[in-house]
């Protein structure tokens, strides 16, 4: 019997869900800070990244300890492998939300001519946070069917991102150029968060099915 080992594994599993919730929240908050020009909220996102990083380090360290000391196999092994992969996706997503918050502090995107663009960024940010939330729900439920739907939802995010770039290309005036470049970066960050959510859903499918095709 390996009760303490399984308790620790369960605790790590829950920590992933907690970390995912933090990332989902950061993504939503960073987007809001940007479109509402709320520098204080942006600072909260930046401060919050320390907690995400701390959870990342803690999960990674504890997972390595379990690998070294408990020699996990079968479903336990797949879960730890999935945790070690997912924790990177979440940490990177946290960094991307941090970058958005940093841009929100650096520049005011509240000019009237950016109104339509802001609305697209809001939509994109909301979709990215929602996708991350859905991926975390699939993780918590260990539901490969739920996870399989995430990649399809990511198409919505990709389309919004493409639309945002089109809109930014259409902007005229020298003043808007720097803003357009920065907002293109924001769009890219949010689109990348969506990709990390898709990665996360792939890990869920690997854990549940054991099929290596979902390892990539």
């Amino acid at each position: 019997m390996r009760e303490s080992f399984h308790r620790e594994l369960e605790s790590l599993d829950h920590e992933i869900v907690r970390m995912g919730a933090l990332v989902e929240q950061s993504t939503q908050m960073a987007t809001t800070a940007l479109i509402e020009c709320d520098k204080e909220l942006a600072q909260k996102v930046r401060d919050g990244d320390d907690e995400i990083d701390a959870v990342f380090l803690d999960i990674e360290k504890r997972s390595l300890t379990l690998l070294a000391q408990q020699a996990p196999v079968a479903g336990d092994l797949r879960l730890i492998v999935a945790i070690l992969r997912v924790v990177n996706d979440l940490e990177r997503s946290g960094d991307l939300a941090y970058n958005i918050a940093k841009l929100a502090q650096l520049e005011d995107f509240c000019q009237p001519e950016l109104k339509a663009v802001r609305s697209l960024v809001a939509e994109l940010g909301h979709a990215a946070a929602k996708l991350m939330g859905a991926a975390i729900d699939a993780w918590a439920a260990k539901d490969d069917q739920m996870a399989a739907g995430i990649a399809l939802q990511d198409d919505v995010l990709d389309n919004l991102h493409a639309k945002l770039i089109e809109r930014l290309v259409d902007l005229r005036g020298e003043e808007s150029l720097a803003s357009a470049i920065r907002l293109a970066m924001v769009g890219r960050y949010l689109e990348r968060i969506g990709d990390h959510a898709v990665n996360l859903s792939e890990r869920v499918r690997y854990f549940v099915t054991g099929d290596e095709e979902h390892l990539g």
């Binding site: 390996r2 196999v73 079968a74």
Partner: peptide, 19 residues
């Protein structure tokens, strides 16, 4: 295969130390 994705629940439980 037995130690990464056993097909039978009893194998999974045994190799992962659940009984």
């Amino acid at each position: 295969q037995i130690f990464t994705k056993p097909r039978d629940k009893r194998t999974e439980d045994y190799v992962s130390g659940r009984f």
